[in-house]
Write a protein that binds this DNA or RNA. Structure first.
Length: 572
DNA sequence: GCCGTTTTCGGCCCGACTGTTTTCAGTCG
């Protein structure tokens, strides 16, 4: 997504929140929210568009277009500033807590003067909430639980947000004279699902110009350290970025060291010690003489430790060293190996892009096949009908004839009901090329019931893929409390694939689940769940998760040729 | 605030669940 679009999206969303908190017109708030989403999913950069061009974005009318133009020219919007004056930023933070919405947040502020999460926790412990109208003991407990959840992410941020910052900084620093190498390392290079801080490495003779360039970046809110070897900043959004400049000869050792994980590095250093060597961020040395053996590339360092190069996504001390020693590292799936996306939406339901635009964007990514899987009617807000689905199918078949290089599959994302049932009867499901089925409601059922529900969905002959199986939303909602071993076993038995949903807020299944599921012999599908053409590239994050789960092409059905995929999708 | 093949007003995605009420407001997907 272009950076400006993301900024405008955040601003419009903030305005929507502020309208809601101040008790303004709910429809007005919704209009801003809708426009925020539309700008976020708009394929072209909004920077440089005028009012007339902006109004062509669906959901953006005169008033919002003018606010966007004001933002583009001055960096702020007076209407937003005005509302910010009346509502402390801390009050808006409160609505990030699950179970706590704008009305309750405003009541807390007005009645108890609460304007931060900390103050809220103190008020709950002082049992001051239960006297408010609409609050009770149970509400206090729910809010506390929500805060725990929010804090469980430990201030870590989502993978895509960190990636965006890191790639932009790497781009800026790479362009400076004297830059021999530049890359991000750390948990971002290992593609963990959330990121604590961003580590950036530069190989250059002189460090000062790079340090100066980092602190001068526009998104820097605070400089935490500014030295010769290391400089740290914090961005306006609270993300810490550490920059280290290494002598070009130490590049490989530095990259290996700062990529981690800590546990992986401990293992590699132990191997070095056994070989009477010493490994540090400066290189691999003879323990006794201190003479340097190598430091220029990661490959050379691993080689001198008697190991093949280990992909960063495996460096978690989960058996990768032993596998490397035996020459049994998996031949990991790559994004290039993916032949098509099997879970995407259009503006027929809650997507932002038309069918035609989604198909164009998929073709541009070089896919051999592409499935359109809009929501089924039990997600009531989508107002789906059989007639709408059949009309879409007819259009998909037409487009399929036009796109000779790419086969289009017509599918749907079904809702797994409270007892494992899905939206439509078998006769209608038989008409789809692919059915993904996902849980979208009743998250708090008992463990037994949730398990039976998912198993029953896997046993449905028309269901080929279980979408975002745990339904977690990072920092917002934990995964379902079900017996997933039973679910994985059922999927293996019935030939139902488990999705690796690539949306940065989901990444579901996550790496640990994938590793466990794989032991049952399950197949997987790495999908974007795109709701806009701009979301199709999310696939890279799902691929990261799949690599962290040690998956190969063979494990993932959407790397397979179309014929083999179709046989897998066949009901039964 | 947006939108329009019932078009410049009067609708706006709908339904369920929870915890608080005693007939409903707030939150969520």
């Amino acid at each position: 997504m272009p950076r400006t679009n993301a900024e405008v999206q955040a601003l419009l969303q903030e305005y929507a929140d502020l309208v809601r908190i101040s008790g303004g017109d709910a429809f007005k708030a919704r209009a801003y929210e809708k426009a925020a989403r539309a700008v976020g999913g708009h394929p072209a950069d909004v920077a440089g568009l005028d009012v007339k061009e902006l109004r062509e974005i669906p959901g953006v009318g005169r008033s919002i277009a003018e606010k966007i133009v004001e933002f583009l020219s001055s960096g702020q919007v007076s209407a937003v500033e005005e509302r910010r004056e009346h509502i402390p930023a801390g009050v808006r933070e409160l609505i990030a807590i699950p179970q706590l919405g704008p009305r309750k947040a405003m009541l807390l502020h007005q009645e108890l003067g609460i304007s931060s999460v900390d103050a809220l926790v103190a008020a709950i412990h002082g049992e001051r909430l239960r006297d408010l109208k609409g609050f009770g003991e149970k509400t206090e407990q729910n809010i506390l639980h929500g805060i725990e959840l929010l804090r469980a992410s430990g201030g870590r941020i989502l993978l895509d947000a960190a990636m965006e910052v890191a790639e932009r900084i790497v781009g800026e620093l790479s362009a400076l004279p004297g830059c021999e190498r530049c890359a991000y390392a750390g948990s971002l290079r290992r593609m963990r699902d959330t990121i604590g801080d961003v580590d950036i490495l530069v190989a250059a003779e002189a460090s000062a110009p790079f340090m100066a360039a980092l602190v001068a970046l526009p998104e820097v809110a605070e400089t935490l350290a500014h030295g010769e070897k290391k400089t740290s900043i914090r961005t306006a959004k609270g993300l810490q970025v550490d920059l280290r400049v290494l002598p070009p000869g130490s590049w490989g050792a530095g990259l290996q060291y700062f990529t981690g994980s800590k546990a992986h590095n401990i293992r590699t250093r132990e191997i070095a010690v056994r070989r009477k060597l010493k490994l540090s961020e400066y290189g691999l040395f003879h323990a006794k003489s201190g003479r340097k053996i190598t430091s220029e590339t990661e490959e050379a360092i691993y080689e001198r430790l008697g190991l093949p190069w280990i992909p960063p996504t495996l460096r978690e001390d989960r058996g990768e060293i032993a596998a490397a020693e035996r020459g049994e590292l998996p031949d990991l799936i790559t994004e290039d190996a993916v032949r098509g996306d099997l879970h995407t939406h259009t503006d027929l339901t809650d997507g932002l892009s038309s069918l035609e635009a989604m198909v164009e964007a998929a073709a541009a990514r070089g896919y051999a096949y592409f499935a359109v899987t809009d929501h089924a009617p039990d997600l009531a807000m989508q107002r789906m009908t059989q007639e709408k689905m059949l009309a879409q199918r007819a259009r998909v078949r037409e487009l399929d004839r036009v796109h000779r290089g790419m086969r289009l599959l017509h599918g749907t994302e079904l809702n797994i009901g409270p007892d494992g049932e899905v939206d439509w009867p078998g006769e209608f499901l038989a008409g789809f090329d692919i059915c993904v089925a996902s849980v979208h409601s009743h998250f708090n059922q008992s463990r037994d019931r949730l398990t039976r529900r998912l198993v029953r969905a896997a046993e449905n002959p028309y269901v080929s893929v279980i979408g975002h199986p745990t339904t977690r939303r990072i920092g917002k909602r934990p995964g379902l409390d079900a017996d997933f071993d039973a679910v994985f076993e059922a999927c293996a038995r019935t030939g139902t694939a488990l999705e690796i949903n690539s949306h940065p807020e989901r990444l579901d299944l996550c790496d640990d689940d994938i590793l466990r599921a794989k032991t049952y012999g399950v197949k997987f599908a790495v999908n974007s769940d795109a709701h806009s053409t701009t979301h199709l590239p999310y696939l890279r994050y799902g691929i990261g998760m799949a690599q962290r789960g040690w998956l190969t092409d063979e494990d993932v059905i959407n790397t397979w040729p179309l014929g083999r995929l179709r046989r897998f999708l066949r009901p039964g």
